[in-house]
Each structure stands twice: as structure tokens, then as C-alpha cells.
Design a protein around this nucleic acid. Structure first.
Length: 883
RNA sequence: GGGCGUGUAACUCAGCGGGAGAGUGCCACCUUCACACGGUGGAAGUCGUUGGUUCAAACCCAAUCGCGCCUACCA
């Protein structure tokens, strides 16, 4: 056979795109036909107008590893990709574009605006899909979905109407979170609390009868125009007598009463709270208890409306606040104003301060669904990895509140509700009606609002499979297996998917939930645009390759921990891939003139047995690790095996056969090398997909593709623990000699004569004798004898202690005797310290009585080992002294 | 205010009841027949602090200090 050539340097750009296209073309990402239980992941859909960031790279890398692994176990495997229409975010993107043209969305009108948004969506969609392809995601593009697809829209409508029919959706006038910038209501969990430095104002409210005044404390004086009362705690002795008295509201003509309500804290501030039912959640509740009419003081854009005195109208809340404070001060109402830190809600999409705002909205009644979701968890139907996230899940569900699902946006699923303009009848419909079902009037109007994006996302695991139709895919792939996502959306998404699925399918949408950490920079800061500390995954791919990125992520993805990286971090994967490339290149060069032969385990020598043993153990480690979501352990096992065992020892050892063996031996060793290499490619494929596929295609002993090959099995027959132990002794010997060379500064060019003296004849001496030529190569020796009868004269030779043997090296001239003695003495000290610990244990009756027998045996073994080492070392000092 | 996580080598992190590990970085030597994105060897840690449990603790428990995150209607 001819040698096979690989490019001299590893250059992932040469093949990554080509291989990806080939995989797609050959349908390798589609589930196979096997009857086994499918493995299914639905991809958390990225925002269609966003770009891929490291967080996506992390969770998609892990999904890819799982998908590729299970695909290689022969199960039909589906990773279903898609994108999310991201209502607010996308609308913001388009409005920003319009703003550059000096336009507002109102200038275009709803229809034109939505049309334009679809165009933007199409363009951005290709970007994000290409990015996913660039990082190597092996998802089934033929099943790709978008949350505003026809099918998914149908699912949304079915859900809405069905919930309405079950009395789980209702409409009402409530105080909701409102973003004045986005101009829409938000759900509770779409509000992010951040600490703001504001002021706490103490303001005088005079009694209407002129008999003095009281003082209230507020952080938002501008809301006073909506005040309907001042409340005190009914148990507050100071104010009991004042309850029922009327106050004159400063800057206005209105009068408001003093009321008693137990929510007021006696200790806080002045113990008196102004009640503004339309602009504070507490006050809203309080207002309901006391039948106070809420007065809305804001326009939809967050400016003060006509309810307020003229000079404040049209001002944004913050500006109004300053002016109100100033006016109050001028008129003598302001008692004091001090700096005050408090948590303020901000819009999670645009970071604008959120206003509590009274408006008519649609809500989902969550309680019953939340209870079902809690039960499913308690019954063990879902498992979080790491488990601690279950607390987050359960406490959220236990304290769940109704979900505001209407958004005052144009981009999204329009609420399927129509109002008759003539008779006022309201219709909630699966199909668009053409006229009023009650009065037959054609004058009907659809609700102008759209639904919260998460109202489509919560259906994702089944709507993407065709639900509400009972499609083949739905029947075959639902429920899915595993969800991989970040902890920041356990509320938004994970728990809601579980609720929706239980409500509509009666079962959970997935069983395992792997919660990834967040990707941060090396200082532990969240990656963000504003900090400019983000890393673009595509830059990583361009610099190091997709494999390097995925492998590095896998290596660093300790279950549940945040991943801190910078550009340099990816050297880890890059160097490993480079090593694989070069080792392969070298092995393929050696095929020249060789024939591959059948591998016969009966002909294995101890070193062959060892490498198969190690491969086998590491295959098991990788399998177990991936199946239990311990990605870092999988990466480490692959890395250690390939680099440390295979490259550093086995490939080096094989050079002896390759350069000095006869043809039969050369054929045999090359065949084994190719076999280990091929199996390594399989084992590493989930983590290093492109390079393993590229190499697989070059190997002479492989067929088809590695992506569709079977993952190596763990085989009892490959276990060779005894040989593995022998190999440890050999490595021990070799390292001892290398260390001595380095210490004495003896260059590699100088071959040395050595005697390996065994403590006793036995397996180890047989092993050494069998591999004496190999030992010579590793120890760089020109003359090496195995002496198990202590018959060779070693006087004048430099001694090195080993376990069960000693190595004598004839280097008399090169030795600095004093320095060597000092070195050995330090070693004795270290060993003596270890021995002391062991002896203390072994002379401790409590230890002997209580410890496990294994532990005792192990300590005894250690004692023997340390004693042997000290004894030998001491002898060696004597030997050196005699020089 | 509650909850969770975390503090191990210069840096990023594994280990989580029985001899302190990896990658990067550092030092020395080696451009020797795939790989200098390499090889060989080496230095480097009171495992945050203090108590406790245990024959045995980086690992379990308690307290404490530092950092991070989530959650909560104190105006």
C-alpha cells in the first residue's frame, strides 16, 4: 500500500465547510430508521434578528455533542433547529432602522411595517443559520421551524382559544409593567431589577381644615397627581386619631382622606404613605381594599398627561419628578430630600425604567397549570442537571402569578379576538370570522395587540413537531429527551414549556434539563456589547477552527459552572486538534509498502494489551461522562488517552517495530496503529467532529463516515490490568533515567550502558526481558541488561530506585557526587514524611479497627513502597560516596 | 430581607472522606527521523479563615470573611 498524505499543517479552514456541506447533502443529520427509542433535542430558538454569541456557542456545542454521541449509538436522533421572532427585540431593530431614515413605524402603518419586518427577518435569519452551520451544529435543517411559521401560528391560536374556553385566559383592567420606550406591557419576569440611586422626599400634606399638616415619604413625588389617599398603619399610635381626616393635595385643588391599612410599615420613613393606585402595585391593592378610584397620570409614552397641572404636562416622569420637587420646595411643602438607593424595574429589552401602568390586558391564569408542573417534578418526571436548579423551578411555580400575554406591538401573533363594532360582541376564534356571530354585522375589528413571544415559545417542543396535528413526527419524537439551556430562562421558558405540555399533551415535554453556566470573560464579567468584552464565536472559528472551539468548551463545561474564557483559552482545543492531525499524518506516512492484516489479540504483546486496555477504559469514561452530562470529564478522558497514552508512549514504542521489525511485524503494528486511530476518531467525534471526519476519510481501514459509525463499545475482553501495571513500571524506569540525564546534563547524543536489577524474578522481570529493546529506545541506552539474579557487577554505576527494581546507569564521569547525594537526601526526606503519616495510621488502633480493609491494605502497600524507596536511596548514597 | 453558588499553583479550572491534579504561563535543555500549536525535565499550593465530626477532612458540619448571581410590594 502507498503512504497517504495529509497536508503538512493542520488547517481546519481547508475542510470544515466542505465536510459540513457533505453531511447536509447526505442527510446525516436526519434521524435514522431504527426502531430504537429516539433521542430528541429541540434547540432553544435563537432570536432571529440577533447574532450568535458565546452563550449560543456553549449551549449549541453541548447539544451537538449529545446529538452526535447518541446518533453513534444507533438510536434515531433528532436535533430540531429553529429561530424565534422575538417580538420586542425585533420590532426595536426595525424601528431603529426606520429612525435612520427619519421614520417612525406609525408613518408606515401596521401592514407596511410588518411587511418590512418580515424582510428584515429573512435577511437576519440567514446570518444566524450560517453561524450555526459554521460552528458545526448537526441539527436537522429539513425540520427547521420559526415561531411565526404557519404551523406554529396555528398552534398558538389553538392554544389561545383552547385556554380561553377552559377559562384559563381572561381580559381585564390591571396595573401592569409597562415600558414607555417599547410602548408595551411586559410580564413580571421581563422586568429586571437594578439598583438605582434616587431620592427619598419627605413632603408636607396640609389638613384640609387648615389645622396643620402631616408628612409623607416618597421616592416618586411626581405621582402625587394620582394620589387618592394617605395611609397609616392602624396600629400606629401616633396617627390613630387622624384616620378619616381630609388632606389638601399640594399643587392641586383636590382633597384626599387619611386611611388605615396594615401594609404600611410603622418604622419606615414617616409611617405615612401616599396612595397612588394607578402607579404602584401596593397602592393598587390598597386602593382596591378601600374603593379608591385609580387616576392615571401618564400618557402611553411615559410623559405626564392632562390630569396633571399644566406646567408638568408632557414631561417625562424623571423630569417631572425634579420639577415637582422644585415646585414643592418653592411652595414650602418639601421637608427634606435625601439620597436613597433602591431597586427599580427596567425593561429587559431596552433597559428603560418600567412604569406600573393601568391598562386593559390579556392574562393567563397560571395556578392550576403550575400545580401540574410541580406535581410532575415531585413525581420525578423531570430532572435538572445540576439538581439545585430544581429549587428555582419549584419556588417560581409555587409563587406564580398570572401571566400578562398581550403586547402593544405590531410584530408577533395577533390576538385571535374580534369585537363587533355594532353590537359590542366579543369573539375568540380559531378561524378568522367574517362577521359578527351575534348580529351578523361585517363591522368587526380584531384586537390590535399581539401575544408575548413566549406564548409561542412555550409550545416549541411540540408545535415544532406538527402539533396540534397528530403528525408522524409528533407521534415518533414527542416527548423529547433533553433540553439544554441557560438558567436565565428557567422562568420564561423551561417551566412554561412544561406547563403547556402537561396542559395540552398530558405529559412533560422532556425528561432531562441540562442547565449550562453563563459564558463570562476572564474577570468573571458577563459578556456584553456595552462592556465590549464579548468574544464572537465566529472569530474563534476563524482563528482556531470549529473543532477547537467545541472541544475547549466541552473541556471547560463543568456541570453548572460559569465558563470563563478569553481568546487564548481556545488554544487548548486548537493544540489538541493540531496534535491529532500531526500524529495521524505521521502514521499515514508509515503505510508505505505495508499491508493491513487482521488484528489478532492472541499475538498481542504486553504493550499492545496495555494500549487496548487504556483505550477501552477511556471509551467507558467518555460514554459515562456524556450520558451523565459531565462534558469536561469526557473531554479530559479523550485528551489524556490520545495525547498521553497513545502519542507519547504507544506511537513512540511502535517506532521500534516500524524501523527495525520484519515485514510481518511492521504490517502487524501498522494495522494496530490504524485500528487505535480509527477507534479514537469515533471516540472523539462528538467533541471534535470535523477533524475526525476528515481523518476518517483518509484512513485505509474505515468505511462510510464517522458521523454515522457506531460509537466504540466497552469490552470486558480488552481489560488487561496486569499489563497496565507493568507499563507503569516501565514508564517509571524511563522517567527515572530521563530525569537523571536532565539533572546531570547528559545530552541525548550520549547513549548509556544500564543494568536493570529486579528485586525478584517474576512477571516484571519477564516483562522487562520481553521488552528490553524497547527499554533501550526509551531510556536511550546502547547496552541494557535485565538482571534478576543480582549477578551483574554494578559497582561504580549510578543507581536509580524503582518499584520492584533498581536501574544502574554507568555514568561515573558525569556525576557531581555531592550534588547527587543532596538531591537523594531531599527525596528521602519527602518520602520519610509520607512514611510517617502512613506509620501513624498503621500504629493507630482506631484506624485498624474502623477503617475499611481496602484502606488498611492500601496503607500497608504504601508503607512497603516508601520503605523500599528509602532503603534503596540510602544504599544509593553509600554507592555514590564510594565513587 | 430570603435563596443559591463560589473562594485549590501566577491565571482559568478539575478533584469533593484515605498518597494535592490539568491546561495556560514560568525556568532549563532539545530545532532527533508527525507535531516548536512540539519533545524532555523542572520550579511553583498553610486547598479563604476559625472551630467541630471522624481512625482519617481540600472534601462532611457550623461559624466567619470575600466575591458573584437569583429572588422580594417596605413608600
Amino acid at each position: 500500500m502507498k503512504a497517504i498524505e495529509l497536508e503538512k499543517t493542520y488547517n481546519p479552514k481547508d475542510f470544515e465547510n466542505r465536510i459540513y456541506e457533505q453531511w447536509v447533502e447526505d442527510g446525516n443529520f436526519k434521524p435514522c430508521d431504527s426502531k430504537e427509542k429516539p433521542f430528541v433535542i429541540v434547540m432553544p430558538p435563537p432570536n432571529v434578528t440577533g447574532i450568535l454569541h458565546m452563550g449560543h456557542a456553549l449551549n449549541n456545542s453541548l447539544q451537538d455533542i449529545l446529538t452526535r454521541y447518541y446518533r453513534m449509538t444507533g438510536r434515531p436522533t433528532l436535533w430540531l433547529p429553529g429561530t424565534d421572532h422575538a417580538g420586542i427585540a425585533t420590532q426595536n431593530v426595525v424601528e431603529r432602522q426606520l429612525a435612520k431614515e427619519g421614520l417612525r413605524r406609525q408613518d408606515l402603518g401596521r401592514e407596511k411595517f410588518v411587511e418590512r419586518t418580515w424582510q428584515v427577518k429573512e435577511k437576519h435569519h440567514d446570518i444566524i443559520v450560517n453561524q450555526l452551520k459554521t460552528i458545526g451544529a448537526s441539527c436537522d435543517w429539513s425540520r427547521e421551524r420559526f415561531t411565526m411559521d404557519e404551523g406554529l401560528s396555528k398552534a398558538v391560536r389553538e392554544t389561545f382559544v383552547s385556554l380561553y374556553e377552559r377559562n384559563l385566559i381572561y381580559k381585564g383592567l390591571y396595573l401592569v409593567n409597562y415600558c414607555p420606550h417599547c410602548g408595551t406591557a411586559l410580564a413580571d419576569d421581563e422586568v429586571e431589577h437594578q439598583e438605582d440611586v434616587g431620592h427619598l422626599y419627605d413632603v408636607r400634606y396640609p389638613f384640609a381644615d387648615g389645622s396643620g399638616y402631616i408628612t409623607v415619604a416618597t421616592t416618586r413625588p411626581e405621582t402625587m397627581f394620582g394620589d387618592q389617599a394617605v395611609a397609616v398603619n392602624p396600629d400606629d399610635e401616633r396617627y390613630k386619631s387622624l384616620v378619616g381626616k381630609m388632606l389638601k393635595l399640594p399643587l392641586t385643588d383636590r382633597e384626599i382622606p387619611i386611611i388605615a391599612d396594615s401594609f404600611v410599615g410603622i418604622e419606615f420613613g414617616t409611617g405615612m404613605v401616599k396612595i397612588t393606585p394607578a402607579h404602584d402595585p401596593n397602592d393598587w391593592e390598597c386602593g382596591k381594599r378601600h374603593n379608591l378610584e385609580p387616576i392615571n397620570i401618564l400618557n402611553p409614552d411615559g410623559t405626564l398627561n392632562d390630569v396633571c397641572p399644566e406646567q408638568f404636562r408632557g414631561l417625562p416622569a424623571k423630569e417631572a419628578r425634579d420639577l415637582v420637587a422644585k415646585t414643592l420646595e418653592e411652595q414650602g411643602y418639601l421637608v427634606k430630600c435625601e439620597e436613597y438607593k433602591h431597586e427599580v424595574g427596567h425593561c429587559y429589552r431596552c433597559n428603560t425604567t418600567v412604569e406600573p401602568y393601568m391598562s386593559e390586558q390579556w392574562f393567563v391564569r397560571m395556578r392550576s397549570m403550575a400545580d401540574k408542573a410541580l406535581k410532575a417534578w415531585r413525581d420525578g418526571e423531570i430532572h435538572f442537571y445540576p439538581k439545585r436548579w430544581e429549587n428555582t423551578y419549584s419556588s417560581w411555580l409555587e409563587n406564580i402569578r398570572d401571566w400578562c400575554i398581550s403586547r402593544q406591538l405590531w410584530w408577533g401573533h395577533r390576538i385571535p379576538v374580534w369585537y363587533c363594532q355594532d353590537c359590542g360582541h366579543m369573539m375568540v376564534k380559531r378561524e378568522d370570522p367574517c362577521c359578527c356571530e351575534k348580529c351578523s354585522s361585517k363591522n368587526i375589528k380584531q384586537d390590535p395587540d399581539v401575544l408575548d413571544t413566549w406564548f409561542s415559545s412555550w409550545l416549541w417542543p411540540f408545535s415544532t413537531l406538527g402539533w396540534p396535528e397528530k403528525t408522524e413526527d409528533f407521534k415518533r419524537f414527542f416527548p423529547t429527551s433533553t433540553l439544554v439551556t441557560g438558567y436565565d430562562i428557567i422562568f420564561f421558558w423551561v417551566s412554561r414549556m412544561i406547563m403547556a405540555s402537561l396542559e395540552f399533551n398530558g405529559k412533560v415535554p422532556f425528561h432531562d434539563i441540562y442547565i449550562t453556566g453563563l459564558v463570562r470573560d476572564k474577570k468573571g464579567r458577563k459578556m456584553s456589547k456595552s462592556l465590549g468584552n464579548g468574544i464572537d464565536p465566529i472569530d474563534v472559528v476563524n482563528l482556531y477552527g470549529a473543532d477547537a472551539m467545541k472541544f475547549t468548551i466541552c473541556y471547560l463545561a463543568t456541570q453548572g459552572q460559569d465558563v470563563l474564557v478569553d481568546m487564548d483559552s481556545f488554544k487548548l482545543g486548537s493544540r489538541f486538534a493540531n496534535k491529532i492531525w500531526n500524529a495521524t499524518r505521521y502514521l499515514l506516512m508509515n503505510l508505505e509498502g505495508r499491508n493491513l492484516v487482521k488484528i489478532d489479540p492472541a499475538k498481542f504483546n504486553a504493550v499492545d494489551k496495555w494500549i487496548y486496555h487504556s483505550l477501552n477504559e477511556n471509551i467507558l469514561k467518555v460514554r459515562t461522562a456524556i450520558e451523565s452530562y459531565k462534558f469536561n470529564e469526557a473531554a479530559q478522558a479523550a485528551y489524556d488517552f490520545f495525547w498521553n497514552d497513545f502519542c507519547d508512549w504507544y506511537v513512540e514504542a511502535s517506532k521500534l517495530s516500524l524501523y527495525t521489525g520484519d515485514d510481518a511485524e511492521k504490517d502487524r503494528i501498522v494495522s494496530i496503529l490504524m485500528d487505535i486511530l480509527a477507534q479514537s476518531m469515533k471516540m472523539m467525534h462528538p467533541m471534535l467532529s470535523f477533524i475526525t471526519e476528515e481523518i476518517w476519510s483518509k484512513l485505509p481501514n474505515t468505511e462510510g463516515k464517522v458521523i454515522t459509525s457506531m460509537f466504540p463499545e466497552y469490552l470486558e475482553s480488552r481489560k488487561s490490568p496486569k499489563e497496565a501495571q507493568m507499563m507503569v513500571a516501565m514508564q517509571d524506569l524511563v522517567r527515572g533515567v530521563r530525569n537523571m540525564r536532565a539533572e546531570l546534563g547528559i545530552g541525548a547524543e550520549k547513549k548509556l550502558r544500564m543494568v536493570v536489577r529486579l528485586d525478584k524474578a517474576g512477571d516484571l522481570s519477564k516483562f522487562m526481558k520481553d521488552h528490553v529493546d524497547l527499554l533501550k529506545v526509551f531510556a536511550n541506552s546502547n547496552e541494557l541488561s535485565i538482571d534478576d539474579a543480582s549477578s551483574v557487577d554494578v559497582s561504580g554505576a549510578f543507581p536509580i530506585a524503582g518499584m520492584g527494581f533498581e536501574t544502574y546507569v554507568f555514568v561515573r564521569d558525569a556525576i557531581d557526587v555531592d550534588k547527587e547525594i543532596a538531591r537523594i537526601e531531599t527525596e528521602i526526606k519527602k518520602t520519610q514524611a509520607l512514611l510517617d503519616v502512613v506509620n501513624k495510621k498503621l500504629s493507630n488502633e482506631n484506624f485498624l479497627n474502623n477503617a475499611k480493609q481496602e484502606a488498611i491494605d492500601k496503607e500497608k502497600g504504601k508503607k512497603a513502597e516508601f520503605e523500599e524507596k528509602i532503603e534503596k536511596s540510602q544504599k544509593h548514597i553509600d554507592v555514590l560516596k564510594s565513587f
